[in-house]
Simulated assay, not measured.
Amino acid sequence: MGVTIRDVAKRAGVSIATVSRVLNQSKPVSNPLKQRIMQAVEETGYRPNAVARSMIRKKTGLIGVIVPEIANPYFSGLVEGIEAVAKERAYYTVLAISEKDDRRELELLRIFQSKQMDGILWAAARLDPACQQEIIQSNIPCVIIGQRLKNKDIPSVAIDNRRAAYETVSHLIQLGHRRIGMIHGPLWDVQSGRERLEGYHLALQTYGLSFRSDWTAEAGEFNVENGYQGMRAIWRTAEKPTALFCACDRLAVGAMTYLKQEGVSLPEEFSVAGFDDEELASLITPRLTTVRHSPYQMGYKSAQILTDRIKGKRDSRCDAITLDYQVIVRESTAILKQVLTTDL
C-alpha cells in the first residue's frame, strides 16, 4: 500500500486535518509547522492526488499559455518568463501553439476552459473578436501579452510599438535620410504589422516627408527570407531609398543580405534598423541598430498579474501595463554622406 496522508501526519506529529490545510493552502499555519509538515512529505515520499486536491481547492494549479509559434526567440523568451513565475508561485503551465490561426486560438481557449485551467496567458496574433468574447463570457482570469485591448476587463502587458517605431525612424531621419522604406509584418498582426507601420508613417508625417508605397513591403512571415524578398522588391524602384526600417531583426538581416549581394556598402551607402534586439542583431556585420525590449520581462509580468487575479487580487493599475524599451544605436545606421547634420 502506498504512503497516505495519515503517514505524513504521524511523521510530523500533527493531525490529518493540519496536513490537509498545508497541502491545500486552505487555511494559514505557522511557518515552522508548515516546514515540519513539508519535511515529512519529503521524507515519506507522499504524493497528493491531484484530482482530489483540485476538487477541494476548486483550483487545478494549471495555467494555459497560448503563443503563435515557439521557434521565434521572442516567444521562447516569453515562455521562460512565465515559467519563472509559475515555479515561484507553485503553478504548472500547459503550452499550446496557435500557428497564428484565429480559429485555432478560439479552439484552444475552449479546450483550456474545459480542462479547468485556473487562468490563461494569451500571446494573441490577431485579437479576433470571437476569442475576446469567449474570454469575457468564460470568467476565467486572462492576460493578453504583447497587444492592447479596449476592454479593460482583460488586462494586457505590452510595449508601445508605435512610439518605438516612431523613435527608430526619427533616428534615421536625424541622420539625414529622407528616402526611408519599411518591411513590416502582416497588417492583421497588431503589434508587428499595424502598430509599427503606424509609427513609421507618423515619423514621416512629423518631419514632412512623403510616404511611398513602393518603398514598403509586407512580410508574410518574420524570417530572413521574407526580409530578403522584401528588400529585393523595394530595390526594383527607379528612385531607391537610402535607409530601411524593419519590423523585426530577422527581416532586417534578410534585407542586409540582399543589399550586400547587390554591392551596397552598409552603412556608408545605406542604413538599416530593426526591432527586438535578438542575438543575431549583435552577430551580423555591421551590427544592427534596433529596439531592445525584454520578452522575458513581458512574460514574467503577465504571469504575476494573472496569478494575482487567480487569487482574487485585482489592481486597476495593472489593467494595461506598458513596459520599457530602448533604441540601441549600432553600426548599421550612419549619417548620409551627402547631407550635413546642420541641414536638420
Rank of each mutant, 00 (worst) to 15 (best):
T257C: 10
V329M: 03
I180V: 10
T4S: 15
V291W: 01
V29R: 01
A281F: 00
V22G: 09
C246K: 08
G227A: 10
A84Q: 15
H293P: 01
G77R: 06
I82C: 11
R53M: 15
T289Y: 04
T60Y: 07
V291N: 03
L340K: 14
P241L: 08
G193N: 03
E221H: 14
I66T: 09
Y92D: 10
E88K: 08
Y296L: 09
G263M: 00
K87P: 00
E218Y: 01
F211M: 12
P186H: 04
S302D: 05
E107A: 12
R104G: 07
S170H: 06
I335R: 14
V327Q: 07
V190T: 15
I183N: 05
F275I: 12
A50N: 08
R232F: 07
C246T: 14
C246Q: 04
E195Y: 00
Q147Y: 08
R47D: 04
C131G: 08
I144E: 02
N72L: 06
V67D: 02
E225P: 01
E195W: 00
M182T: 15
G263T: 08
L62R: 06
P141K: 10
T60I: 12
E43W: 09
L62S: 12
R57V: 12
R194I: 09
G61Y: 10
W235M: 12
G193W: 02
G13A: 11
D319I: 00
L109D: 03
R292K: 11
R126C: 06
T60K: 07
T322M: 11
E107F: 07
I140F: 01
I135H: 03
K152I: 04
T93D: 03
L78W: 06
G146I: 11
R232K: 15
R21A: 11
R194P: 02
L306Y: 07
Q113D: 06
N31E: 13
E69V: 11
K27E: 10
M182Y: 00
T307H: 03
G119M: 08
V264H: 10
P155N: 13
I120W: 02
I16Q: 14
C248T: 14
A123P: 07
L202G: 00
G312Y: 05
E198F: 04
A84Y: 09
P68K: 10
V8M: 07
A9V: 15
V67R: 05
R163Y: 00
R89S: 04
P295K: 10
E107T: 09
K240Q: 14
R6H: 11
S170T: 13
P286A: 13
M55N: 07
K87G: 06
K34I: 00
E42Y: 12
C248Y: 03
R126S: 11
I159R: 01
V169M: 05
A252Y: 06
P28H: 08
D189R: 06
T322K: 03
E167W: 00
Q116T: 12
R292G: 01
S282K: 05
A86T: 09
C248L: 04
G263D: 03
A130F: 00
F211R: 09
H171Q: 10
I56S: 14
L280W: 05
